[in-house]
Amino acid sequence: MNAMTETLLYRHLDEMTPWDARLQVLEVIGVAEEAPDVKTFTFRSDAQTWFRYKPGQFITLELPLEDGPLMRTYTLSSSPSRPFSIAVTVKAQPGSVGTRWMFDHLEPGTHVTAYGPAGDFTHHNHPAGKYLLLSAGSGVTPMMSMLRWFNDCAPWTDVAFVNCARLPEEIIFRKELDLLGNRMPGLTLGFLIEQRSKRENWFGPTGRIDFTRLSLLAPDFLEREVFCCGPEPFMRAARDMLKAAGFDMAHYHQESFSAPVAELAPDILPDVGVDGDAVAEAASFPVRFALSDVDAESAGGQTVLQVSRASGVRIPAACEFGLCGTCKVKMTAGTVEMAHNGGILDEEIEEGYILACCSKPTGAISIEA
């Protein structure tokens, strides 16, 4: 790195513009091992812009696999209070493809395309006097983003941080959490493991989360704003436990990347149990993909994403049920019926943006794609 490059790295925030996912890619600047099969990847913008997001939000990475691009959504474990870089902390599960590719190929200096940030799982949307951040496994990542923000911006906040893991050595961010526990006067830490380990001594509680164990780790949990993230069985158990305890579920929030309803696309509807006449009667409308100079036709109530794929026009997509926001495109003419799950902001809709995965044309439309 020459002296000129080093000088350009040190710029004041007011001299920089926010990162634009549509124009700038990410450069890896750090890789750190957090626990067995868990790594943190830290990025900066290739255009030296700063990152504006809310703690707990996520981004979607486009991973260039040999068989074609693979879209994977990861929660940011970093805090927007440190806006010059962002980080994701990922666990390589058995059989995982995207995360294993990241482990094998991402190193300082490499670049990757990203989309976002997106998501509404953040304490900024639910101000409260007391919080419970309840997580299991890699579900700790959005909680860490929020806790780091609290540490930087409001260290006196009353936060009960409860994390569950299979083994003591699998507690992610353990050393940093212990350090924050000594620095934040309002923070109480609670760890719960399923089984003891031969590698590390454990003197804390064991077993799976239930009313008795949660009462031990966070005695006043009924009085707190609860954020929960982890494997679906864990979150289901947490929801059932809180309901049974009489908790006001209006103060319960969870992060999940699973589709709320499995909705079949018109082109893969089964032959049995479907009103074929209704599908056939669905109106068709012209769809213009302006940047690709392609004219297509929506058929049988197809989404814009389905039309684009059938026409050979590539629109990046990850979750495909209106949550991640990866397939956000601008509609310059026409109207659509859009049923999203929070992956797009009201102001973005006002500017003409839609989510291609959950938008069905209601007339002739033109898309910037």
Rank of each mutant, 00 (worst) to 15 (best):
L147A: 14
T141R: 07
M146Q: 15
C164E: 07
K198A: 15
T157S: 04
R166G: 04
G119P: 09
G204F: 09
L242I: 04
S256M: 15
H126R: 11
L187R: 08
M143R: 06
A244I: 12
M146W: 04
A245V: 02
G190F: 06
V226R: 04
F257T: 01
I172P: 00
W149I: 02
F211R: 13
L132G: 10
T188N: 13
G204C: 11
R148F: 14
F173L: 05
R166F: 09
G230N: 06
G230R: 02
C153E: 13
G139E: 03
P155W: 08
C228R: 02
G190R: 06
W202S: 13
C228A: 10
T157K: 01
C164S: 08
P127A: 13
L180H: 00
F227S: 03
G190M: 00
F121I: 02
D178W: 08
A165T: 03
L179P: 00
P219T: 07
P127E: 04
N151W: 15
D248H: 02
W156H: 11
H253T: 06
P205Y: 11
G119Y: 06
L192F: 09
H126P: 04
E223I: 02
M184S: 09
D120W: 03
N201L: 10
M144V: 12
T212V: 14
T122G: 00
